[in-house]
Structure formats: structure tokens, C-alpha cells
């Protein structure tokens, strides 16, 4: 398995992601310039990552213009063929804009850019799938967030479908795992921090696990999330 990290103009977490995958997870990983239209070196065993940042300066809407970058046509085809695609923060916004994930990320409820550690817990089928990792994944993980537009929203019918299909991957919670309004940093509907598509090969989340993958940084919770989410053979429904 290898990883490709797409670099858009304005991406600023691409190096963090490359570094975490290469040195903390010991994976083969290459940067992919957004103008490249050839990702034929990647098979459905591999994973394409859309990193955080401010692609195209967040002009118009976060992720709206990046969604039409030349590489995205290939990324969408790759996802439709069953390849894994993973978006963090701005990457999550781009996945929602491109229609690979349902819903949208709205401006934070409290009108502020938030940059701090928060707590999340794995949810539903994701937690179930990883029950062999129960010791780790039934716990609560401390992961940094850094965003101004992270309030996940989906209309009621879409939200019901997300729940029914077990597509909610992470919810914001407090340090003890309780979902409270105070532990929801941006006002996301149902405390949702991350979701997958129905086929479980496209994932998006607002928190940044790649910033929490090394003992030197004082937090390795992100490593557990990246390992289990991206390197599990397949998440089942």
C-alpha cells in the first residue's frame, strides 16, 4: 500500500501529512501536484490524501475551487473504483464539495477560527469494525482542530441516512467520552467530526490526526487513528 498527498495552491498541512505517513507510520508516500492528471501509479490498494489548508485562499467557499483542480477528476474516478480517499480539514471540505461525501462544512457557530486540542471518539460501525483494537478505539482521542468553517451540516434526510448506514466515524466529546454541547467546538450537527461514504472507502474529518503522530509533539493519538482508518483492509457496514 502506498499514499499520495495532493498539494493544492494554498494547502498548508501537506508536509505534516507526508511527514507523519513517511516517518511516523513508515509508509511509502509521494506528493501529488494538483495539476497532475495522471495518478495511474495508484491502485485501489492505495490511498490518496487531501490535506488541510486554504486551497485557493478559501475563495468563494472552502474547497469549492479546488474541487475543479485537474487532479480531482482522477481522484473522483479513483474513489468510484474503490480506492481509498482521505480528507482532513480543507480536504474534508473538498470531498464534500466534490460530492464524494454528503453534507457541507459551514462557518463555525461561534464565529471564531478555532485552533486547539479537542476530544473525539470513534463511532458506530467504525468502532465495531475495529473491536480487535478495542483497547484503543473505545477510548477517547485528543486531536488538534484548526478551522473557521468546520460546522458539519446535512439536511435531515441525509443525516438519517448517515446514521442508518453507520457512516458517522467520529463525534466530538469531552475527555470522558460524553457528547456535550461544550465539547462541540464548531456547532456541528450531532457533534459530527468525521464521516465516510456509504461504500466506506472515502473518509473525511475536521480534526488533524497528522499533527498528533509523534512523541516529540507530545501526542500520538493521531497515529492510532491514521493506522486504523487508512490501513484497515476495508471498513465493513
Amino acid at each position: 500500500m502506498k499514499f499520495g498527498v495532493v498539494v493544492f495552491p494554498g494547502s498548508n498541512c501537506d508536509r505534516d501529512m507526508l511527514d507523519a505517513l513517511q516517518y511516523d507510520l513508515n509508509q511509502e508516500v509521494v506528493p501529488l501536484w494538483h495539476k497532475s492528471e495522471d495518478i495511474s501509479a495508484f491502485t485501489t490498494e492505495d490511498c490518496i490524501v487531501l490535506p488541510g489548508g486554504f486551497s485557493y485562499g478559501d475563495y468563494l467557499r472552502c474547497g469549492a475551487i479546488a474541487r475543479f483542480s485537474p487532479i480531482m477528476k482522477q481522484v473522483i474516478a479513483f474513489a468510484n473504483d474503490g480506492g481509498k480517499v482521505y480528507g482532513v480539514c480543507n480536504g474534508f471540505q473538498i470531498l464534500c464539495e466534490s460530492g464524494l461525501l454528503p453534507g457541507a462544512l459551514l462557518r463555525n457557530e461561534r464565529q471564531q477560527y478555532i485552533c486547539k486540542n479537542i476530544f473525539i471518539k470513534a463511532e458506530g460501525s467504525y468502532k465495531e469494525q475495529l473491536k480487535e483494537d478495542a483497547g484503543r478505539f473505545q477510548g477517547v482521542y485528543k486531536i488538534p482542530v484548526a478551522h473557521g468553517e468546520g460546522r458539519f451540516y446535512a439536511d435531515p434526510a441525509t443525516l438519517e441516512a448517515l446514521k442508518a448506514n453507520g457512516q458517522i466515524l467520529f463525534r466530538y466529546c469531552d475527555a470522558t467520552g460524553k457528547e456535550t454541547p461544550e465539547s462541540n467546538p464548531n456547532g456541528a450537527i450531532d457533534n459530527i467530526a468525521g464521516i465516510s461514504n456509504a461504500q466506506r472507502n472515502v473518509f473525511g474529518m475536521m480534526p488533524h490526526p497528522e499533527r498528533a503522530c509523534s512523541a516529540v509533539l507530545g501526542n500520538e493519538d493521531g497515529k492510532k487513528i491514521l493506522t486504523s482508518l487508512l490501513m484497515a483492509r476495508q471498513l465493513v457496514s
Partner: peptide
């Protein structure tokens, strides 16, 4: 297709 996002 681009200027507006019907979800929001």
C-alpha cells in the same frame, strides 16, 4: 455547478 452549494 460552482458559485453556490445547494446543501447550504
Amino acid at each position: 455547478q460552482l458559485l453556490a452549494n445547494a446543501v447550504m
